[in-house]
Design a protein around this nucleic acid. Structure first.
Lengths: 174, 174
DNA sequence: AGCCGCCTACCTATCGATAGGTAACTTATA
DNA sequence: TATAAGTTACCTATCGATAGGTAGGCGGCT
């Protein structure tokens, strides 16, 4: 893994625990064994690092998601697949969704970081709308925004109350 | 308004925009016209200020909520009342829920702040469970966690995408 | 030769926190 | 009633730590 990749990985861990201000160039550098000044070689400013982090996170998330049609072809409900990806983040990473946290801090973020967070949610809503449409929902856009909202909120509350069963209850159909 | 109240109010604005690390004693002090050292007279440490802020926020929120039975007696659906309180925060304050933001940062918060955030959600879940029970829901605890999750998530996404109609779509019954 | 990836060695700004002091007010006591 | 003691709500000055960022150097690889 290159130093740049290592920096992004270290930053992701920090941000997913405490937000944008929860990482510093010094901490990141010392964790991967270089000097803080060298971090500026890879990322001119902190905002550049944050933006690239959110961008790559979004790409990785979308990539892991695949396409709704592909899941339907395999006889799987794409909404279940989507929910499962959130569940994995909570159970295995034991961390918040990067963009869920950044989104909450949205008002105080550098513009280029905020832009990438917006992109995450717009792409997610697009995916979910397609999925709900395929599922025959009469209002796929409503259903899409309800799905992300519920999952992001459930994640946050499970983390806060330190009990993953809240996530399960929230995602369990009535 | 006392200086202490003014400090808490100033801190609330900052935190609801960017989280726990988005306020400093210096900024708060200069905003209300005292020196940063004097802030320590009212709050020994930053964690003390944060904890008291979350505590008072929770009390004010619960107070504004009233009781589920009182709303039922007035022919109002308590869940609608609850939703409306979130909507007000978004539309009038134009800010995130304080504890929604702090909850997302939960992992990096001082223990006493985290404790108060937990209290917010436990109290909210209690209120909502009672409300859903009164509404005749067969699984009031499930419904309660689903309600908070959806509202907190919808708030975060509306703030992120800078469009309150997302909140409306999310809270609109299917 | 030239660039890549890192380094040393800084800078300025800001952070939370502490020490010690002061003026104004309140309370307790003789 | 007068004075002493204590409290409230601030102040100035300063601490060590840390923040993001910059200038310029140096070795290794092509």
């Amino acid at each position: 893994m290159s130093k740049k990749e290592a920096l992004l990985k270290a930053a992701e861990n920090k941000v997913r625990l405490g937000g944008y201000s929860n990482f510093s160039f010094r901490e990141l550098a010392s964790e991967i064994g270089i000097k803080s000044a060298s971090v500026h070689y890879h990322f001119p400013t902190k905002a550049d690092l944050g933006a690239e982090l959110a961008h790559q996170y979004t790409n990785a998330f979308l990539n892991a998601l695949g396409s709704p049609s592909e899941h339907l072809a395999n006889g799987k409900n794409p909404i279940e697949v989507y929910t499962q990806l959130f569940r994995s983040a909570l159970l295995f990473d034991k961390k918040m969704c990067l963009c869920g946290l950044l989104g909450a801090e949205s008002d105080s973020l550098p513009e280029k970081v905020r832009f990438e967070v917006k992109r995450f949610f717009n792409q997610n809503l697009e995916w979910l709308t397609e999925a709900h449409l395929a599922n025959g929902e009469q209002q796929p856009k409503h259903a899409a925004i309800q799905t992300v909202s519920l999952l992001e909120g459930a994640m946050m509350i499970s983390k806060t109350l330190d009990d993953n069963s809240y996530f399960e209850l929230a995602t369990q159909p009535a």
